[in-house]
Amino acid sequence: MPHVLFYFFAFFTVITAVGVIVNKNAVNAALCLLLSLVGVAGLFALLDAYLLAALLVLVYAGAVVALFLFIVMLLDVQGGVRKPFKPMTAIASAIGLALLLTGLATLVNRTQFAAVAVPTAVGQAPVGAVLKRYAEMLFTTYLLPVQVVGFLLLISMLGVIVLSRKHPVEEETK
C-alpha cells in the first residue's frame, strides 16, 4: 500500500511541477506550486517525517504561496500578450534539463542505493516520528545554528522593511 501511495504522490508532484513551468498565468503557476508542495508533504509523511510534512504545508503552502499570490495580485505581472518564452531559450533549457537528467541517471546506475535497507529496530518508532528527538537535537547539538537562524530571520525582517519603504532622496530627484 505505501508503494501505491509513493507512486501516486510522485506522479502528482511531478505533474504539478510541470504545471508550474508551462502555465502562462502566474496565478495558475502559484496554485500548481501549492499542489506540488502538498505532494512533497505527502512524500515526507510516507518517510515518517510527520512534523516536517506539517511544517512544509504550514510554511510553504500557507505563507510562501500566499505571499506569491499577494504579489501577483498587487503587481500586474502577466506580461501582456507576449509569449512566455522564446524557442531559442526553450532549446537551451531543454539541453540543460537533459544534462541534469543524464547526471541523475548515471548516479543511479553507478551506485547501489537499492541495497540500502531501512534500519528497523523491532518495537521502536522510526526516526523522525518522535518529537522529543527533534527537541533534543535542536537544543543540544544544533543550538548555535538555531540562534543563527533566528538572527537571520530578524535581519531579513529588517531588510524587507528597508527595501519596501520609499526612499526620500528618490522622491526629491523626481
Binding site: 508550474v20 513551468i21 540543460g96 534539463l97
Partner: peptide, 13 residues
Amino acid sequence: LGFFGVLLRKNTL
C-alpha cells in the same frame, strides 16, 4: 524540472 523552469521562463515571479 525546477532548473528547467528557471532557464525557460521570463517572468521573475
